Each structure stands twice: as structure tokens, then as C-alpha cells.
Amino acid sequence: MKKILLSAAVLMLMFSCNKEENEIVDSPETTTLAHRGCASHEVLDRQLKEDPSLAQRMKEIEFNTEKTIAQGRIVNGVLEIPVVFNVLYRSSSENISQSQLQSQIDVLNKDFNAQNSDFNTPNNPYSSIRANVGIRFVLDKVVRKRTNKRSWGTNDAMKKSNRGGIDPTSPTTKLNYWVCTIGGGILGYAQFPGGSSATDGVVIDSKYTGTNGTASYPFNLGRTATHEVGHWMNLRHIWGDSTCGNDQVSDTPTHNTANYGVPSVGHRSTCSGTPLEMYMNYMDYTDDRGMYMFSNGQKSRMLSVFSTSGPRASFR
């Protein structure tokens, strides 16, 4: 098990990844993806380079997160988050239906409240620390806009009307969810707490949103949004974005790297102590059917961002 190490977190944020995603314009999208692709860490790395003050803000968030968890000052009850869908479409298939968008809200509500049908999957070695996060999502409104772009990349162009996208709606009180074709094998990405409100929210491809309509196997159960909203609430990938890295959560095991597909029960890390990997965690890279839980430590970390001193306190 890992201890939360503030200094390690800051170093990880600043130096652990030097890959930068570029905008992808008018390039064809692959028809089938073999593995989950999340660009949240790469987008964060770009934002850290573009805004030198972001590292200090995130350092302060980490300090307040540790303090809030240690003192037990976590939001009680169920927090309700309004969701604004910003749909950018070139074809009719990309202009996904209200039903498909609502199915995504339904998945978020189940996954964040331990009501998902696979929550009680047998032989889960981590069943004792499964979390009911206690956050409710409500569809606030849908904004739709036709575009000529085939794909948008990961440089936040879809969030800016002056670049053909859609500006966020009340990003300090509503979760903005952009639906568009990202390209480059990326299913989605999120902005971590501390970034600019002008680009705050999550971006997810229309083919990996919700559970009906154009939702595509093996990412057709709405778990891409669960994963990305986890990032939006300050969760890291479970392997810490480096070999045997640290996700800053005390009750998740150390992972070698990302898991793909659906690993067999009993899959062990080769990191120190060879712990059982928590591949069924929403913050790994498994197929949608392979992920079905957050841990209690992740719950505390997520709820801390909504505390009175947290970076998303305005959502209370």
C-alpha cells in the first residue's frame, strides 16, 4: 500500500511525462480501438508547460487534499452535480440522441453510488474497500453545434467558440462534458482541478458516451466518462503514470503499468511486494466490462475537492 507523498506528487506532475498531444484536424478515425486511450495526463503535462503557475496551484491542492482527508472534513451526504453536454457533430451519427446522453448520466449515477450491476462481482479481492462515493449527476442542458471538423485533438479547441467549438456553461458550478470525435485513438480526457475555468470539464468521443445508440464495444458501458470524471475529481491513473508509480491513494496497490482487456483474477504486479493489482478499478485502462469500483481512499480524495477549502467548493 502507498502513502500519500506530496513532494512526489509535484515531481510527478512536472516531470513524469514529456509526450505532448497535438491537435488532430480532418484525419480519419480508426474504426475499432484495441485499447483504452485517455489523454488526461498528457493534457495536464501540456498545461503545466503553458502555465508555470499551475504547478503551484496543484501543489496547494495536494496539500489541502492531504489535510482534509487527515482531519476527516469530507462533504457529507449526496452532492448533486449538474451536467452540460456540449455536442459537436459533423455527421448525423456524431449528433447523438438525448437517450444516449441520458444513458451516460444513468451510468455515472450508478457507478458513483455503488448501484452498478457488476458492483458485487464475485471473487473481487478488494470487495472490502469498495466505495459508495455518494455523488449524484443531473442532466442540466444539451448544447449542439454542427462543425466541419473530422477530429478535434486534445488541445481544448472544442471548448472555444472562436476555434469552432462550444464555450463552457458556468464551469464553476456545472460539469461541462464535450462530446466530439477526438481522433488519434483517444477515448477521452479531463482537466484536473486547478486549471483554467475556461477549459474545465471532460471531453469524450461520441462512440464511447453512454450505453446505446453509437456506443461501441468494448467501451460501450459508459465507463469512459466514469474514468474521466474521476480525473476531474483529482484521481490519477491507478499506476501513477509511471512504472510502479504512485496514484496518491493509500488503499490502492502499486501497479506496473496500465491493464488492458479484462485480466484474470489474481493478476499480480511485479512491483515491490508483488501485490494483487486492482484492475477492476475505474482508474485503470481495462475494457468497460472489466472495471466496476472505486476504493474508499479514492472516495476521500474525490470528496475533498468539494470541501470548503477544496478547488471545487463552488459546486456545493
Results as ranks from 00 to 15, higher is better:
T31H: 04
T31F: 02
T31S: 14
T31M: 02
T32D: 03
T32I: 10
T32Y: 04
T32K: 08
L33C: 04
L33P: 00
L33M: 09
L33G: 02
L33E: 13
L33N: 07
A34S: 09
A34R: 13
H35L: 06
H35T: 12
R36M: 12
R36P: 00
R36L: 08
G37V: 04
G37W: 03
G37H: 00
G37F: 08
C38D: 13
C38E: 09
A39K: 05
A39I: 09
S40M: 08
S40Q: 01
S40N: 03
H41G: 01
H41C: 04
H41W: 11
H41L: 06
E42G: 05
E42H: 13
V43R: 12
V43S: 02
L44V: 02
L44K: 06
L44F: 06
L44E: 13
Q47L: 15
Q47T: 05
K49A: 11
K49L: 15
K49N: 15
D51S: 10
P52Y: 06
P52T: 09
P52M: 11
S53I: 03
S53F: 08
S53Q: 11
S53E: 12
L54P: 01
L54A: 13
A55Q: 04
Q56Y: 10
Q56L: 15
Q56T: 14
M58P: 01
K59D: 06
E60V: 11
I61Y: 10
E62N: 06
E62I: 10
E62G: 00
N64S: 12
N64P: 00
N64G: 00
T65P: 01
T65L: 13
E66R: 11
K67G: 03
K67D: 09
I69S: 03
A70D: 10
Q71D: 12
R73F: 05
R73E: 11
R73N: 11
R73V: 08
R73M: 07
I74W: 01
I74Q: 02
V75H: 01
V75F: 05
N76K: 15
N76I: 03
N76L: 03
G77K: 13
V78S: 02
V78I: 15
L79C: 05
L79S: 02
E80T: 14
E80A: 11
I81E: 03
I81Y: 01
I81T: 01
P82N: 10
P82Y: 06
P82K: 04
P82A: 10
P82W: 07
V83F: 12
V83Q: 09
V83R: 06
V84N: 13
F85R: 03
N86M: 11
N86F: 07
N86K: 15
N86A: 09
V87A: 06
V87K: 08
L88P: 04
L88Q: 08
L88A: 10
Y89R: 07
R90Q: 14
R90V: 04
R90A: 08
S91C: 01
S91R: 15
S92R: 12
S92F: 11
S92L: 13
S93R: 14
S93N: 12
E94H: 09
N95W: 05
N95R: 15
N95K: 15
I96F: 08
I96H: 03
S97Y: 09
S97N: 14
Q98F: 14
Q98S: 13
Q98R: 14
Q98L: 15
S99K: 12
Q100S: 10
L101G: 01
L101Q: 07
Q102P: 01
Q102D: 15
S103L: 11
